[in-house]
């Protein structure tokens, strides 16, 4: 870790902070050097933006357009509201640009695996095959003239879980910039972070990726300026029940990230953190890179610019789970 650098600023800076719950996690916003009334108004505007985005993209908001689409699109072509239509087009574009590694149609598979893994078992081949037949972006048919989509098979269901937080962060950051804000730190559950401008006391925001088993230690530090960072990862399933239940041979190492090709959760205990000028792109790539074999990653990233990425692998057989950088890209 770098040495603590004390800036030449001696006067204490007024820092505004607001945390709130949105999109199933905690959103935090830090603004520096902005008077409180203005900061309150900015926070209120950010919250409104998040509520709108959550309503548009949540599959659980039964009155929302995505839930509506999921209910109806197997029976008829559904014309979603313009903002959701744009999002779906964007998701299709990222699916193409990541060679299918990013895919918003995998819900039937991820649900199947989660339900079985919670009971400590694997789904049978038949069930995997059936769920696989209900997934795949190629089965989501777009009618560009009518701005409508339709599912090819019943049982399909779209999930924007690996997309929404990044997309929403971009919208909030846009709103702040439009209001003349030049410096901010925004975080969604610390798995998606966006910064505006430099750190108040330095040239950039040094954001460390914490070692899951030694959270005060940064395994790698990203230096962000007008950029976003997104992290995805897998973990032993019983990690969800708490660290203490993890032992070295305990449970199969599986996460909730599904490889569309195999129909199975990806293997290994590893995390992928991606920095990008766009929060949406960082979010998309953090999942896509985890799914993509190491040898194909550079080719995938050649279609993107200003990306840096770090994959951290944990080794349960070692003391302290030996967090090590497994793969790295960019600066």
């Amino acid at each position: 870790m770098e040495a603590v650098v004390e800036s030449c600023t001696t006067s204490r800076i007024e820092v505004f902070h607001r945390s709130l719950f949105a999109m199933n996690t905690r959103f935090s916003m830090i603004l520096a050097g902005i008077d409180r009334d203005r900061a309150e108004a900015l926070a209120a505007a950010a919250e409104r933006e998040l509520r709108v985005q959550e309503h548009t993209m949540s599959r659980f908001d039964t009155a929302g357009p995505l839930a509506n689409l999921n209910r109806r699109a197997a029976d008829e072509a559904v014309r979603p509201p313009a903002e959701l239509w744009e999002i779906l087009l964007l998701c299709r574009e990222y699916w193409q640009r990541t060679a299918g590694a990013f895919d918003i149609t995998l819900w039937p598979l991820s649900r199947l695996w989660r339900e079985h893994l919670e009971r400590g078992e694997e789904p049978c081949q038949e069930a995997i095959a059936k769920a696989s037949s209900q997934t795949g972006m190629e089965r989501l048919h777009f009618d560009s003239e009518a701005c409508a989509v339709r599912f090819e098979t019943p049982g399909m269901s779209l999930d924007l879980g690996g997309f929404g937080k990044g997309y929403a962060l971009d919208r909030v950051a846009e709103g702040l910039r439009a209001q003349g804000v030049e410096q901010a730190f925004l975080s969604f559950g610390e798995s998606s972070i966006t910064v505006l401008g430099p750190h108040p006391h330095g040239p950039d925001w040094p954001v460390g990726i914490a070692d899951m088993f030694d959270p005060a230690r940064a395994v790698h530090t990203f230096h962000l300026k007008d950029a976003s960072l997104s992290s995805s990862g897998t973990a032993p399933f019983n990690r969800m029940a708490g660290l203490e239940s993890l032992n070295q041979t305990a449970s199969p190492i599986v996460g909730q990230i599904i490889n569309a090709c195999s129909g199975r959760p990806i293997e290994g205990f590893r995390t992928m953190s991606v920095a990008s000028p766009s929060a949406t792109e960082a979010e998309v790539l953090s999942t896509a890179l985890l799914v993509t074999p190491e040898r194909d990653r550079t080719a995938l990233l050649s279609g993107f610019s200003a990306i840096s990425a770090v994959e951290i692998a944990y080794h349960p057989s070692e003391q302290d789970f030996g967090a090590r950088i497994q793969w790295q890209y960019g600066s």
Partner: peptide, 23 residues
């Protein structure tokens, strides 16, 4: 927040995947 308030500039080990929809 503390570091900004007190004029410090340092890496904050904050990033990482959130496994469970926390809290």
């Amino acid at each position: 927040i503390n570091e900004i308030e007190h004029g410090f500039f340092d890496t904050v080990p904050i990033g990482g995947p959130s496994w469970v929809p926390e809290l």
